[in-house]
Design a protein around this nucleic acid. Sequence first.
RNA 1: GUCUCCGUGGCGCAGUGGAAAGCGCGUCGGGUUGCGGACCCGAAGGGCGCAGGUUCGAAUCCUGCCGGAGACACCA
Length: 587
Amino acid sequence: MPDPQLALTARVREALAAAFGPSYAGTDPVIRPSQFADLQANVAMSLVKPLTAERGEKQNPRNIANEIVAKLDKGDLIDKVEVSGPGFINLTLRDDWIAGQAQQVLADPRLAVPKTDAPQRVIVEYSSPNVAKEMHVGHLRTTIVGDAIARILGFLGHEVIKDNHVGDWGTPFGMLIEHLLDLGEEKAADDDSSVSDLTAFYQAARQKFDGDEEFAGRARKRVVLLQAGDPETLRLWQVLVDVSKRYFNTVYERLGVTLTDDDIKGESFYNDLLAPTVQELEDKGIAVVSDGALCAFPPGFTGREGEPLPVIIRKSDGGYNYSSSDLATIRYRVDTEHVHRMIYVVGAPQALHFQMVFAVSRMAGWLGDDVKAEHAQIGNVLGTDGKILRTRAGGTVKLSELLDEAVERAGERFDAIEHQEDFDAATRDEIVEKVGIGAVKYADLSVALDSEYIFDIDRMTLFNGKTGPYLQYATVRIRSIFRKGGIDPEKATGPITIGHEAERALALRLLDFGSVVEQSGELSEPHRLAGYLFELAQAYTSFFENCPVLKAPDEETKASRLALCAATLTTLTTGLDLLGIPVPERM
RNA sequence: GUCUCCGUGGCGCAGUGGAAAGCGCGUCGGGUUGCGGACCCGAAGGGCGCAGGUUCGAAUCCUGCCGGAGACACCA
């Protein structure tokens, strides 16, 4: 991989070994970005102590730095080396090395990002909406972030199992099914105002359940029938599930999320596994009865009064809850799916729940050094007032309405601009849809996933600044150059040479793509990639300002600049694709 | 009471233990009708909630406090 940090790490290590002996060959030279050069090695300061001990007299970090530099083989990699400050080693790369590496990036469809040599089977659990309920803002981030993580890990060569753990089981289904029967099954499924408006459907059922004893009684009986596997009840349940799936898929399609029906493994899937899972926990002596409920008490968790906190595995009425379900899920993923890593892209409020479920799973031996589970805590979405986003009436905000609003705002901004070309209404709508959705997704993906974030449509739809539309625009401008020049980007193969400072900065930035993607995947932090793409786009616009491409002074320069444009375009579109952000060809 | 997350320029956010803390919006001042100005350049503006500690070096690690959000027994 053409990663300058890696290349310099290897090179400086050789110098360390040559200067201080083979035992230093494994020492981390601490290569970091520098404001005074391309990169800097910060290892000298940390070597003072061991070298002082070894040599028996007080060592000076600047001298140590000089010793390293004396043994450093600049080769075809390093242009300038200088020791400064207390012992920083400033490293400037050779222009031709940068150009050569950029050339490799350009020549490789994978942008010189290698597939991992240690592929893992990874489950990414995300989105997880509830059947018979509308998706709301809370699902936005889990869906978008989870999809980005899945795409990134897949690109890196891991075997990714996407898992949409939909809420399709449990007590609410009694009332939902009874309500469906009350409405009349045929009518309900077709009527736009009933099942297809899931929020209204759910609320109506809820209201009857709370206010009508007779209905509530029927609903409770219906739950028992459902869990006992009564065929007619299951059929009605399936009706609700199917309506919901169709609805989920319209949302996923609109969002450009890769989830399909095949990725759905809802709570119902684990129904038959609940009893054996609980049995195993009992056999292992982890589960004990407390207040009539079967519980596990993982050490270190206490409640309000300092009392041990249970994970309830089976309720006192014999029923199961979401802890049982999550435990059965972990057991299944370990025993049957043989995964190495599980990433739960789920809201932060459930942090304690997952900590405890993971703790119990470790007690049971399901999780350990070879199988890891992590909770990617998704922070709450806030309104511009800094409070949890709600409608004016205080209800939850529907996802589709939020998207409509963003697309509409994007459209207003789009129309306010003087365009390079005229778009007919259909094309305009198509572009605006991509801009609006891209704006929402980029805003969502550009902040650290565990911090709360303010959903500000005005801000995210700006066509300048750190936004989706700005990045989309950067790609459009590049395409425009190729179009105007009548050149196929595929045929812009260079060779790349470095003449101007802006060319150098751009090429250097291109080399970081692989390590950024790797980090984003390893840490489950797609915002690193989002931030990088913005920096790359900025480097490109600076290049664009300073370095004429089609009007370059000579053919060699033109070929090189076209190649830089092509490499940037591919990197941007590949990166945006890993984030699941749509990219219009014109706008 | 326990636990999680968060406190960084007016606002919104980045920041692998390394030099003078960055970016976007906004503000002020310039450039440019260009290979798409939906752009670029420059300026003002904070020393990272507070107090200790570890370290050659802390926004980053540790401890304690303050402030905000949230979770904490049979809902998911």
